[in-house]
Design a protein around this nucleic acid. Structure first.
Lengths: 275, 275
DNA sequence: CTAATAGTGTCTATTAGACAGTATGTT
DNA sequence: AACATACTGTCTAATAGACACTATTAG
């Protein structure tokens, strides 16, 4: 016969947590930033690209493949503290914008054992790039993202190595409009991290329209041209100057400082304006 | 000295998964629907309210309090299959729109042991309400949601019992625009489920604007008046008829059927149009 | 007839898109 | 001077908000 408890304290004292089969939890972080590539022409502005931080696995499983920085959630650690700790470990950066993306939990997503993983997105100011990176970590530029017929083709490059993968957008039945990503081609990225990468890029693309998250990727002072380039690289399309300036006009404040020495008319530096 | 593995198979055969401390994973489902309340006047249309399904806990912890339907994720079950199973158990419904909301993982969110929980939102057609409900489950109408000075006050009612809780929207520092919900007053709802409820309602409010998810809450055939009422109850504000009809005109198809017997001009029935 | 909702026409205000123009520092 | 970007003015197209009006049924 089952024991009857009269208070929560009494119940908890007796509680045996081993009756359920337990599992492991990890977090994976998609660390996004915008990098600049010299054009060679002293007049032209640098070409901007999105970049993501990947880590080369030097252990099984997926030995030799690239993956997102991540790690196990400690038993006495809040879920949301895990990505902060891992971000610090990999980039030595504190106080970074982090946002939970999605929690993946297929039974066989990790060949070792049952692992459920929460993915996070971190947005980093480009000027903090390449400082104190963990040695196994490496920035990859997103060379191109091409979508046609529901197949998304992505090419990454870190200066030495190309990574190319393809994902298909598959409509779910009972959702009227949502789709999920399914890997079509991928031989260099471990786990389900290609899906995480695309989910994060898509999330950022949406969020840039109705929030101010971009400013987490910007330095304290920036020109409107630079800000526009970041928008363009995230949205993956050209914007018209007057329209762009109209839209961001109430999110920024003009300073009296100028950015000069660029081979053309100098531009005013702006700051983010909290509302 | 560490053993060197030459293949993934070899590595996995030796792998001891017990080296990490494990934890339990649950899912909680916010089941949302729209209910109708008779007005007493044969001419007037029913008053619509959002409703959510809550379960009374008859065991510790939180014995006697209400919570969202939920349960443990089985060790051999995909994460996303768990909410499907639990939804079936509680409502006997299949093929329902389900969407992951957020994964909560504070160390002490469950007093028994370390549990991380993924919350899901399910959207149900009002005409399937109250059929084959699990006996411990009960629909609560959202009587009111009032927001002033970043405090959100919610009142629920199931016909017998009132539930009233308050949540504060607190800005996070390093996010430029995101806030999180913090409980201010709550003595009837278990765990962190008040937060899940508000997150879901907010998500739905946003998604109704840029997706077609509403139609998961509608029957096969509906009038534009009914559809508009569902929009209004989700957005918690009145809409102007012409504007509403313009916006949804490309999402619906008019049929030649009429809804009559309402004490006023009959209205055409419409169907959802996939695009 | 009346109460109540169904459904439409149209005016106005706001916002988005597009283009063309002027401005200015570096080499 | 010429190049490249900075920045603005303005026209047009599209969209959103508001109001007023007509239509149609059950009782």
């Amino acid at each position: 016969m089952e024991k009857v408890y009269n208070s929560e304290e009494e119940f908890l004292k007796d509680y045996d947590s081993s009756i359920y089969e337990k599992l492991s939890m990890t977090v994976d972080i998609l660390i996004l930033s915008v990098s600049s590539e010299e054009t060679g022409n002293y007049r032209k502005t640098d070409k901007k690209k999105m970049s993501i931080l990947l880590v080369k696995r030097d252990d099984y499983p997926f030995k030799g493949k690239w993956c997102l920085p991540g790690g196990f959630v400690k038993i006495d650690e809040d879920l949301e503290d895990a990505p902060i700790r891992i971000l610090k470990r990999e980039t030595n950066l504190d106080n970074i914008y982090l946002e939970q993306l999605y929690t993946f939990g297929s039974v066989h997503r990790d060949p070792r054992m049952r692992i459920i993983s929460s993915s996070y997105m971190a947005l980093i100011d480009k000027n903090r790039l390449n400082e104190n990176l963990n040695e196994n970590a490496c920035w990859f530029d997103i060379v191109s993202i091409n979508e046609k017929d529901d197949i998304i083709d992505v090419i990454l490059n870190n200066g030495y190595e190309n990574i190319n993968f393809s994902i298909k957008k598959v409509l779910k039945e009972k959702t009227t409009d949502r789709y999920k990503f399914v890997e079509v081609k991928n031989d260099k990225i471990a786990f389900d991290h290609t899906i995480v990468i695309l989910s994060g890029l898509e999330r950022l693309k949406n969020k840039i329209e109705y929030t101010d998250v971009v400013f987490n990727m910007m330095p304290e002072l920036f020109t409107l041209g630079e800000l526009q380039q970041v928008y363009e690289v995230i949205l993956n399309k050209k914007l018209l100057d007057p329209a762009f300036r109209r839209i961001i006009s109430n999110k920024v404040v003009k300073t009296n400082k100028l950015k000069t020495g660029e081979g053309h008319r100098p531009s005013y530096l702006f700051k983010y304006k909290h509302n």
